[in-house]
């Protein structure tokens, strides 16, 4: 662990009412790293991700992003979210806005760009995810894969320094997963720092610098993909990976 970790999560605990859903979770990332969170359903992956951009509030621990305490009560959460993009499992595109409208809203209303500048930026980002020909389509007119790519473009348009992906391909038909993973591969190549929850193990294996295995809100094991996939130290990790593999 170095002093200049870009993201350092230390002993984060979270309760929903009486139920503790995160137990002293710790991991860290350097700038440009890709970390993949894996684990069974209900193990706290989404919650961990959402604590990083404060869509959920951790009650204990520390999350340092670029040296700043994310969990500080004085932190400007809107400012934090400007710098941390999020991609949702269910896309959550703004249903009343076109693809361009979805991507331009943040630049327009949060960054204060002019209408034209915001539109230009949105067009650039949509081109980046391969949707230059769907600028004026509404979410309901797009396939799931296209919708998720709009979701990625919407987050990228804020020029974030960290991207959070919460099972970005889980809601997609199998034939549409590839186009989204391709866009994510592109981001990895550009050096984007990414914290990804996914069950796409081949993607994880290919791009992750570190895999963190969560179970019951605890980090059971973490390490580089070769180690975790080939020689898991914990029995639970091995069993989980077998279960995932048998689904493919």
């Amino acid at each position: 662990m170095s002093d200049d970790d870009f993201l350092r999560v230390t002993d984060v605990s979270k309760w929903y009412g009486e139920e503790q859903v995160l137990h002293d979770v710790s991991f860290e990332m350097d700038r440009g790293d890709v970390t993949v969170l894996i684990g069974p359903s209900g193990s706290g992956k989404s919650t961990m991700l959402r604590c990083v951009n404060r869509l959920a509030e951790a009650q204990e621990g520390s999350i340092l992003l670029d040296g700043e305490e994310v969990l500080s009560p004085d932190l400007d959460v809107d400012e934090l979210r400007r710098e941390v993009g999020m991609v949702f499992q269910g896309f959550n595109l703004f249903a009343h806005l076109t693809a361009v409208g979805n991507v331009a809203l943040g630049p327009r209303r949060v960054l204060g760009l002019s209408e034209t500048e915001a539109r230009e930026r949105a067009e650039d980002q949509l081109e980046r995810v391969g949707l230059a020909d769907q600028l004026d389509s509404y979410p309901a007119e797009l396939s799931g894969g296209q919708q998720q790519r709009v979701g990625i473009a919407r987050a990228l348009a804020m020029e974030p320094k960290l991207m959070l992906f919460d099972e970005p391909t889980s809601a997609l038909d199998p034939e549409l997963i590839g186009e989204v993973l391709e866009v994510m591969h592109g981001l990895v190549d550009e050096g984007m720092t990414m914290l990804v929850v996914t069950h796409e193990m081949s993607f994880a294996r290919a791009v992750a610098d570190e895999i963190v295995f969560l179970d019951d809100g605890r980090v059971v094991e973490r390490g580089p993909p070769e180690q975790l996939f080939e020689r898991p130290e914990e029995e639970r990790t091995g069993r989980f990976l077998e279960r995932i593999a048998s689904h493919d």
Binding site: N53, D78, R81, F88, N92, L93, F94, L105
Partner: peptide, 20 residues
């Protein structure tokens, strides 16, 4: 999820309600 997506790009609660 609509409000949440709005907040995730940095809109305040009021702005997310207003624009989304």
């Amino acid at each position: 999820g609509q409000l949440e997506a709005g907040r995730s790009i940095g809109l305040s609660r009021f702005e997310a309600v207003r624009y989304v």
